[in-house]
Design a protein around this nucleic acid. Structure first.
Length: 901
RNA sequence: GCCGGAGUGGCGAAAUGGCAGACGCACAGGACUUAAAAUCCUGGGUUCGUAACAGAACGUGCGGGUUCGAGUCCCGCCUCCGGCACCA
């Protein structure tokens, strides 16, 4: 196909220009802005400017990529293009825009590649970054590359480790609802606390703590994983099986923030579905703990229930097979059966336990408990449908009003008692909703919500239970047995005779670099590979380094903060920079708290987005940041499918490589197509034919401006010299129809309706319809005999965010055919004038009984009565209303007329 | 099962309760060309109807409802996508 316009020369030319001129450099408060920089020129700034002197900030962030060996994928640039368009738009609107990019480069693939090839992950990572960077830069994004971040850079992870130490040295004070320095933790008091006991107490309250607990172990990956990284009993990365295994691990106390993370969602502008995913993951449920004394032996079992109002219906209890009391309470007669069941359950993977065992299983322990409300003796069973990890690991079973208990009771022939009547008054075993309590002594007759309140206060009065809240959220398993991650800034020291104790590495020793290793392979015992570096591990003073590393999420938990002040060596980011870019107060010039706009994939809904919010809340509590929520507005871009409508994958062979598209159609066409495909959030299939469509549009834009003859000369020169000469672009002249004349009313109307539509659509993230408005303008403008420069210039400003290279080139030509400097990037976004949009006459559809029958032309200023008269008089309408009584005539000015007969 | 989101031409899609299908792809016809490509112009929801116009009926997953008027609002279903899933 013949090239529509010389994008192969135009695009690199302008990218070099932007790079050399630092066009997209974002300026921090207090930074010296060169007088000649277009940002300074636009805003009349010179030299050092403080936060108050700078224009309003706008922080537009992409989820930074993991630079994989496969290179960029057409899905990556979708979000990046959307943010770039908005960044360019905000610049034109006069904002100081922060639009950065970086690399989330610690991670498994680089390490696995290292294991296979023996090449150091550092090397692979650097190579992959180079590929990603070249590809991303070839799209003409207006990133401030001076702020580039690499999470594996010691200058960066020094601060990741530093934040970890802040977590380590803090506790969550339930009284204030905030994280506070560990030094402020009151001692438990009461008697003589040995230093040993005090230390243990402190360690048990830290936000980063060590615990020995069953954790997800992935044999194939040779590491443990967080709950969030396990999907259907398989690892999120690679889909390998995982098993529960007790191991000593580092945890972060995210559960302390469950309520804060829930409440924070109310303050931010995220899609309802995404908020819902986070709410579900946190899984708050209100209920009560109820204490059931054992019939013998004086001990008691505490259960959690969301339906304490059904307490009278509890006819048996179930403990999870792993429950602490199982051994104690099991009777001799049942011991064999109980141990057999426990063994059977232990053998099953979690996958089998949940998916395969639809049919309930369980065993009677032989023991009985006493129902605290009616002193009834009820049997205690164990069953694997009760999870050890939720609530107290034990339940009261109310088979009449719980589907699972019902199924279990039917199978094992346990009694059921109806205690809730459905609203219809129908007695119904198996009714699960809210109704009226029955057969429940002092609760009988009460509607469910009131019964819940009454039983809760009854339990509290009698000391038999209390209202409580439970969460599905578990603490965050934070250590990994890998090489390619941030080492923990932690030492282990053994006092004489005592157990080894962890302590923080001194901040002055940061960054703690990983040791040099040649064997990165994981071990099957769970011993991290760092343990092989004995010189690194064992310090001269006898202390030993922690050998676990942090998970990949660590680096992405705070990178957006680093972007505000990337080169700061004294602090994770300067407080003035943080306040300006992240704040809303006097220091912060923005309107919204935190990052103004964050765009990325939905796959991080309960991983990165929850973890980062957690860290940010902690940093906020400790006074390091200005807002409690990091990301004000968040948009998830939809997945791009292959041309066959299937998810792109190597095995399907339907992967589209951006490099191929760029070579053939250029970056502007690529950008435009990705935005024209449909709404940003939707899942949509790729269609290379569609790229040709927008490419043709760009060709039409080109022909709107340039002189055909000069272009032919230019091409002949190119062919003759056999080279791609950028300077030859100077040969291309503007067309003769492009003149500095005053625009006609028709021309103004075309321009201003385009300005209106594009502006409104950009505010609402409707890129596809904004582009269609640009197309409509060009389709009309190309027919004009005279094209006024003033109109074309404004059009280019509208086009610039979408197709920046072409817009720059044509804009330069409008100024001066041989211009080699100046940028359109900071040109003022045009304003539309509504007065220019109004036509003198308007065509109005006329309906009879809601059906379109005719159209009339009326003056724009016509009154309702005039419109009505003219509608009734219309010839075709006459035929429909003849001989009928007109019941009503509805006139919607500017819209339509409907005649009801 | 529960919670989100979505169903509109051959395809991607558009429509503050007010002319359904803007814009684009693909397709068809025409102009230009020795020819092709590129470009430019024209056409198009379906059915009926006409020599051709005209015209009519139907049409936004299905069934109801509200309204002068429903793709849009309400009720009840179906299908697809995403998330959660023995969470007491």
């Amino acid at each position: 196909m013949r090239r529509q316009y010389p994008f192969h020369l135009i695009e690199p030319k302008w990218r070099h220009f932007w790079d050399a001129q630092k066009t997209f450099r974002a300026w921090n408060p207090g930074e010296a802005i060169p007088e000649a920089h277009p940002f300074a020129v636009r805003h009349g700034l010179n030299g050092k400017v403080d936060a108050k002197g700078l224009p309003p900030k706008f922080y537009i962030l992409d989820m930074f990529p993991y630079p994989s060996g496969a290179g960029l994928h057409v899905g990556h640039p979708e979000g990046y293009t959307a943010t770039d368009i908005l960044a360019r738009y905000r610049r034109a609107r006069g904002c100081n825009v922060l639009h950065p990019m970086g690399w989330d480069a610690f991670g498994l693939p680089a390490e696995q590649y290292a294991i296979r090839t023996g090449q150091h992950p550092r090397k692979t990572t650097e190579e992959n970054i180079a590929v990603f960077k070249r590809q991303i830069q070839s799209l003409g994004f207006s990133y401030d590359w001076s702020r580039e971040i690499d999470t594996t850079d010691p200058h960066y992870f020094k601060w990741t480790q530093w934040i970890f130490l802040k977590l380590y040295n803090s506790w969550f004070n339930p009284a204030t609802g905030k994280a506070e320095p560990i030094d402020s933790l009151p001692t438990p008091g009461e008697g003589a606390n040995s230093p040993e006991a005090l230390r243990e107490y402190r360690d048990s309250r830290r936000l980063a703590y060590v615990t020995e607990a069953p954790v997800w172990w992935c044999e194939e990956l040779g590491t443990v994983l967080a709950n969030e990284e396990v999907i259907d009993g398989k690892s999120e990365v690679g889909g390998f099986p995982v098993v529960r295994r007790p191991m000593r691990q580092w945890m972060l106390r995210i559960t302390a923030y469950a309520d804060r993370l829930l409440q924070g969602l109310e303050q931010i502008d995220w899609s309802e579905s995404l908020k819902e995913m986070q709410r579900n993951w946190i899984g708050r449920s209100e209920g009560a703990e109820v204490v059931f004394p054992l019939a013998e032996g004086g001990q008691a079992i505490t259960v959690f229930t969301t339906r304490p109002d059904t307490l009278f219906g509890a006819t048996y209890m179930v403990l999870s097979p792993e429950h602490k009391l199982v051994e104690t309470i099991t009777t001799e007669a049942q011991r064999a059966a109980v141990s057999a069941y426990k063994t059977e359950v232990a053998r099953k993977s979690d996958l089998e336990r949940t998916e395969l065992s639809r049919e309930k299983t369980g065993v009677f322990t032989g023991a009985y408990a006493v129902n605290p409300v009616n002193n009834e003796k009820i049997p205690i069973w164990i069953a694997d449908y009760v999870l050890a990890t939720y609530g107290t690991g034990a339940i009261m079973a109310v088979p009449a009003h719980d589907a699972r208990d019902f199924e279990f009771a039917r199978k094992f022939d346990l009694p059921m008692r109806l205690v809730v009547e459905a609203p219809g008054g129908q007695e119904s075993i198996g009714f699960l909703g809210d109704g009226t309590s029955v057969n429940s002594d002092f609760l009988s007759g009460l509607p469910t919500p009131e019964a819940k309140k009454k039983i809760a206060s009854w339990l509290e009065e009698k000391g038999k239970g209390r209202k409580t809240v439970n969460y599905k959220l578990r603490d965050w398993l934070f250590s990994r047995q890998r090489y390619w991650g941030e080492p923990f800034p932690i030492l282990w020291r053994r006092e004489e005779g005592g157990p080894p104790r962890h302590e923080a590495l001194d901040e002055s020793k940061l960054p703690l670099q990983p040791p040099a290793l040649s064997d990165f392979k994981p071990t099957s015992t769970g011993e991290p590979p760092l343990a092989r570096a004995s010189e690194w591990v064992n310090l001269p003073d006898g202390s030993v380094r922690e050998t676990n590393t942090m998970p990949q999420w660590a680096g992405s938990c705070w990178y957006y903060l680093r972007f505000t002040d990337t080169r700061n060596d004294a602090r994770f980011c300067g407080s003035e920079a943080e306040a300006y870019w992240m704040g809303t107060g006097p220091g912060g010039a923005g309107v919204r708290p935190g990052v103004d706009l964050y765009v990325g994939g939905i796959e991080h809904a309960v991983l990165h987005l929850l973890y980062a919010r957690f860290w940010h809340n902690v940093l906020f509590d400790l006074g390091y940041v200005s807002t409690s929520e990091p990301f004000y507005k968040l948009v998830n871009q939809g997945l791009i499918l292959g041309e066959d409508g299937q998810k792109m994958s190597k095995s399907r062979g339907n992967v589209v490589n951006p490099d191929d598209i760029l070579r053939e159609y250029g970056a502007d066409a690529f950008r435009l197509y990705e935005m024209f495909m449909g709404p940003l959030e939707m899942v949509k299939p790729w269609n290379t034919k569609g790229v040709e469509g927008v490419y043709r549009f760009l060709g039409r834009v080109w022909r709107l401006f340039v002189d055909e003859e000069s272009e032919t000369e230019f091409e002949q020169a190119q062919t003759a010299s056999g080279q791609n000469d950028v300077n030859a672009l100077g040969r291309i002249r503007l067309g003769a129809s492009v003149r500095s004349t005053s625009p006609t009313r028709v021309q103004l109307k075309a321009l201003h309706s385009c300005i209106k539509k594009v502006t409104e659509d950009l505010e609402g993230f409707r890129f596809n319809t904004a582009i269609s408005a640009l197309m409509i303008f060009v389709n009309e403008a190309i027919t004009w005999e005279t094209k006024p420069v003033a109109i074309l210039r404004d059009f280019l400003i509208l086009l610039q965010p979408f197709a920046p290279h072409l817009a720059e080139e044509l804009h330069a030509k409008l100024r001066d055919p041989n211009a080699t400097d100046g940028t359109i990037a900071y040109e003022q976004w045009p304003k539309y004038d509504t007065a220019l949009l109004i036509e003198e006459t308007a065509e109005m559809p006329v309906q009879v009984n809601g059906k379109l029958r005719d159209k009339i032309v009326v003056a724009a200023k016509a009154t309702q009565a005039e419109i009505k008269a003219s509608a009734l008089a219309a010839e075709k309408i006459q035929a429909f209303i003849q001989g009928k009584t007109i019941k009503k005539v509805i006139v919607v000015p500017g819209r339509l007329v409907n005649i009801v007969v």
